[in-house]
Simulated assay, not measured.
Amino acid sequence: MSFLEKSVVIKKPVEEVFEAATDFSKSPEMMDAVVDVEILSEGPVKEGYKFKETREIRGRKASSVIEVTDFEQNKHYSVRSVQNGLDLRYHYNFVETTEGTRVEFKGELFTEGLRNKLAQPLIKRIIKKEDENHLEDMKKHIETSVS
């Protein structure tokens, strides 16, 4: 049930790209809508790692707890946020290429309840508007930051 798919090539080695992408404390620097991140887990990022992300959407702040549901260093990771009958899952794959690292992204949305099912097209449009360009923003951030 993928509703958003993107890919981008970042002109940096896969280890550097993966490390930057999974440093969730830096999300406010990479994504315009994210205004704050609170790390809820100790230690390195792995399956089960959690953080609280606060976004400003249409002038209102909304927070959600995000959990890493799949993780393989320098290869791929997935995150999931569940709240108010909305189950949002983002999947990232990292592939080393001759130009750098290709990051492939897929977003999925699952809904519970009649109201959410009926509102799903609108919810998808709002999420697309918020996250459609986040890979390009990540690319810009990683390519311009000093290693």
Rank of each mutant, 00 (worst) to 15 (best):
L109G: 03
K128D: 03
S25L: 10
E143W: 14
E132R: 04
V95A: 07
Q73Y: 06
L118I: 15
L86N: 14
S81A: 15
A62N: 13
Q120R: 13
G85L: 03
S27R: 06
F105L: 05
D87P: 09
M138V: 03
N116C: 11
K52P: 08
V34H: 08
I57C: 03
R55W: 03
K140C: 04
E130V: 13
L118Q: 06
V79G: 01
V35Q: 02
K50A: 10
A62V: 15
P44H: 00
F94P: 01
D23H: 13
K12E: 13
F110G: 10
M138C: 05
D137R: 00
T54K: 01
N93M: 00
D70M: 12
E5D: 08
T69E: 01
V9K: 08
V79E: 02
K11I: 10
D137N: 10
D36N: 15
S64Q: 09
F24R: 00
R102M: 09
K26D: 07
V45T: 09
G107H: 00
K26A: 06
L86M: 14
V9P: 08
V65G: 02
Y49V: 12
Q73S: 12
F18N: 04
K52H: 11
P44K: 02
A21C: 14
F18S: 03
E112D: 10
P121W: 01
Y49C: 05
K61V: 07
E38I: 12
A21E: 11
T54L: 03
R89G: 07
K12F: 01
Y90A: 09
F3C: 11
K128L: 05
F3T: 06
L114R: 05
V8M: 03
G100N: 02
P13A: 14
F24K: 01
V34G: 07
K12Q: 13
A20Q: 07
E38F: 02
H76A: 01
V82P: 02
D137H: 04
E29C: 10
K11S: 10
Q120Y: 09
E72K: 14
V17F: 01
M30V: 06
P13V: 06
S41I: 12
I10D: 00
N74P: 06
E38C: 14
V35K: 05
D87M: 10
K26Y: 02
A21S: 14
R115E: 09
M1T: 12
K12R: 15
S2P: 14
E108K: 15
A33F: 05
V65Y: 05
E99T: 10
E136S: 04
S147R: 11
Y77V: 11
F105R: 00
E130I: 13
V65D: 04
K140D: 02
S78T: 11
D131V: 07
E47V: 15
H141F: 15
K6W: 01
N74A: 09
K117Y: 00
E132C: 03
E112P: 03
V35S: 04
E38V: 15
T97G: 03
S41N: 13
T111Q: 06
K129W: 04
K124M: 11
E5F: 00
E15I: 09
T144H: 11
L118G: 13
T97M: 04
M1S: 13
V37C: 05
R102I: 08
V9E: 06
T54Y: 00
R115Y: 14
T98E: 15
D87I: 14
E42P: 10
M1R: 11
